[in-house]
Design a protein around this nucleic acid. Structure first.
Lengths: 139, 139
DNA sequence: TGGCTACATAGGAATGATTCCTACATAACA
DNA sequence: TGTTATGTAGGAATCATTCCTATGTAGCCA
């Protein structure tokens, strides 16, 4: 997905996030990939255009974007945090071989619920599903 | 669930894990709670009986038990790793307030599958579901 | 359009869970 | 009971992430 400046400006404005060159670069890098990069992947990518950018800015920005709902954090087990520019409700396939993460858009999964007997008095707001296995290349 | 020594001995034997005082203490502490403690929680608990135990032993032992399938790691977002002595197939409720984790045993969740259109060539071996919300106390 | 001000950034230091290293101890088997 | 492979303690190292702070700048207002 290619993003132009107006679109970027509108999105940030809508979520009350101040737009800077660094933020534009970080968000664009993330929104244009489906590979669920780590903070450091993004730092390395953005550094090509912004050699002076600091890792701290990347972390701080990801935090801001996440709070604003422009970005999601995806965690595979206890590994390094990875990020997802796709904020529509969706779930993940995780390859146990190459650790790649693939999005699944599936209405049935989105509508999943726990049986009342099992909610243990919780007020449930959302859920996450991850499937583990081996991708075509790793089988 | 109370564990006696014979039972412990049988379980470890069955999974080809060498039994030591430290391992017995760590595994027992974990198997007798449903609170999904962290490695440090277990270290603190076990230290009462074994003042000389090292944190390293706790980490190393949890690794061994996990590989042997006697213990599971549970990860909530990007927080500290937590452990679960319940190795039957099950899923989790997570409280966004107090961060407690509650087990859900639910056949329907265990049998969840992705629609074929969505497997993207993956050979799927298992899945995890976590529900997020607020527990009775935190609402 | 220029100036103000609250918020961003860079860069380095600090944190803290986890892992690594290694000398000593001990469970399990013969 | 002795041997040996494996476990343990303790301290050092790692490394993703967060904290600190001086300087820079986006966005608003006159």
């Amino acid at each position: 997905m290619r993003l132009n400046l107006e679109e970027l400006y509108t999105r940030f404005r809508r979520h009350a996030v101040r737009l800077t060159r660094q933020r534009a670069a970080i968000y664009t890098a993330l929104a244009e990939t489906t590979s669920h990069p780590t903070a450091d992947d993004l730092y390395q990518a953005v550094k090509r255009q912004h050699p002076m950018i600091s890792r701290n800015t990347v972390y701080y920005t990801l935090g801001v974007l996440r709070h604003a709902g422009l970005v999601q954090e995806v965690n595979v087990g206890h590994e390094v945090a990875r990020y997802d520019g796709n904020v529509m409700e969706h779930h993940h396939l995780i390859c146990l071989g190459c650790r790649q993460i693939v999005d699944i858009m599936d209405e049935a999964l989105n509508e999943l619920a726990v049986s009342d007997r099992q909610t243990k008095g919780f007020h449930i707001l959302g859920h996450r599903v991850e499937f583990h296995g081996y991708c075509a290349g790793c089988q």
